[in-house]
Amino acid sequence: MIKVGLILGIAGACRTDELVNLTVDDIEDVGSSLIVKIPNTKTNIPRIFVVTDVGNMLELFRKYLSLRPPHVKHKRLFLYYKAGKCSSQPVGKNTMGKIPNVVASYLKLPDVACYTGHCLRRSSATLLADVGVDITTIKRHAGWKSTTVAEGYVENSIENKTKIANQVLVGTTASATTKTVNKLISTPDRGKKT
């Protein structure tokens, strides 16, 4: 359950309640990918996202779905899995919100209490920004209306800082940057002692 929640949460920049309310009918397995529909969102903008088979993610999802007991009377996707068995009891918001905390504990990351359910949305936005996706696409993916809000979710990761440094210092204008820097170094400051 934790792995599937993590996969869907990051792939779709999902809020905790969106994952909790996800039903088996909201996910279509088309063989090479999953098409996931989030019909009810905080902003009232339904979203669709796709999960492809990177790292056997589809196999994990299918395995989790196959554990679903046949007698379950509701359609909620996430069910409690304990002692090697999947129950019919749906997972609640608090349990779903602790997924990042559980993962952080497993990875022995510092300050595990800081990893809340909202980390799934933040991680999704940051991962997209790290590979160069523009803010409009990030907004559309996560269902944000405001650019300011979307930008607030993108962490200042080392990957982003490195990319910016490379663009400034090594990018397509590297020769112009070098000329400017050399000029600044070789030009004496008039009226100032160095």
Rank of each mutant, 00 (worst) to 15 (best):
T136S: 10
L127R: 11
Y115V: 07
G132H: 00
V103N: 02
T126I: 03
V103D: 04
D111G: 10
H118A: 13
A129P: 03
K139N: 12
A142S: 14
C114S: 14
I135M: 11
C114A: 15
K98E: 15
A113D: 15
G97H: 04
Y115W: 13
N101T: 10
V112I: 14
N94C: 04
G92M: 12
L109S: 10
D111C: 05
L128E: 02
A104I: 11
C119M: 10
T95G: 09
A142E: 11
P90Y: 13
G92R: 10
A113Y: 09
L127P: 01
V102K: 11
Y106T: 13
V103A: 07
V133H: 03
A142C: 14
R140W: 02
S124V: 03
S124W: 03
L107F: 15
K139L: 07
C114T: 13
M96F: 06
M96Y: 08
V91T: 08
I138E: 09
I135F: 06
R140S: 14
V102M: 10
S124H: 08
K98I: 04
L107M: 14
Y106C: 14
P90R: 14
R121C: 02
H118N: 15
D111F: 05
L107V: 12
D130A: 05
S123N: 06
S124N: 08
S105V: 01
V133L: 09
G132M: 01
V133R: 05
